[in-house]
């Protein structure tokens, strides 16, 4: 028991966020283990982004507890931030900087040394095959390439956990596949992945998934167990069954 609790890197207990009368996230609880790929599913407006923003420390919860990489999200926000990476729904690298400049900047503000930045950026450029175009402006890249770069920069400082908020929306199937290769590689290096997505095939790649409806977690288990439990053939069907119960208007 003690050993397994050591491996828990995200622990959330009754976490709640209210905006006035509206409860965006309603007492959600779950745990995520080290090196796990945890899929965080839900229809638009189910409260996924609000939940993520609380976990990464840019939104104050109304009540409940959460511990990220061993740090409390209320009192140790800055320590949380050192140990996580984040890639938002919106592409958020600097479009008016080159690939190299973006790498240097993000390496720098996460406190990496000059040598680390130099070595890791060479490694990264080679891996993404960006060596030839490293001095191109990011704005000139196709969306899929930008997303791969954004993900690589989110884990550039070797965080314990990376939070991905719909990282592949609008990306073509081949690039999505490549993107998931990057995710697997990260988990092999011991990084825990917390990912939201709308693509149900991607949900199948996760070790465990949770499905959120109207701010609450309606289902949480591995994809296989969930299919058994609901006696349905695909995550898509389960998602449809649960999300249909939503009373929130989009």
């Amino acid at each position: 028991m003690i050993k397994s609790s050591e491996n828990i890197v995200i622990s959330v207990n009754e976490l709640t966020k209210k905006f006035g009368d509206f409860t965006a996230v309603n007492r959600i609880s779950f745990e995520v283990k080290e090196s796990e790929i945890f899929g965080f599913l839900g229809a638009n407006g189910a409260g996924k982004t609000t939940a993520i923003k609380m976990l990464i420390g840019i939104l104050k919860p109304t009540s409940g507890k959460a511990n990220i990489a061993g740090f409390d999200i209320y009192t140790e926000t800055e320590n949380v931030k050192k140990n996580i990476g984040y890639m938002s729904q919106k592409f958020s690298l600097y479009e008016d900087l080159t690939i190299s400049e973006n790498i240097n900047f993000f390496g720098g503000i996460y406190g990496l040394s000059d040598d680390e930045i130099k070595n890791k950026s060479e490694e990264l450029l080679t891996k993404l095959k960006f060596n030839e175009i490293k001095n191109n402006l990011v704005s000139s890249l196709p969306l899929g390439w930008k997303q791969k770069l954004a993900f690589s920069l989110a884990i550039f400082h070797s965080p314990k956990i990376v939070f991905l908020d719909e990282p592949t929306s609008g990306v073509d199937p081949i690039t999505r596949r490549q993107f998931w290769d990057l995710i697997y590689e990260a988990t092999n290096n011991g990084i825990t992945v917390f990912v939201t997505t709308h693509y149900m095939d991607e949900a199948e790649y996760c070790n465990r998934i949770s499905i959120m409806v109207d701010g609450e977690i309606e289902a949480l288990d591995s994809p296989i167990n969930l299919k058994d439990k609901f006696k349905l053939n695909s995550i898509d069907d389960i998602f449809y069954l649960l999300a249909r119960k939503s009373k929130r208007k989009e």
Partner: peptide
């Protein structure tokens, strides 16, 4: 507007 400030807010930049 570009959303880059969010990326800075989740970083350890003070």
């Amino acid at each position: 507007e570009d959303g880059t400030i969010e990326q800075l807010n989740v970083s350890p930049l003070k």
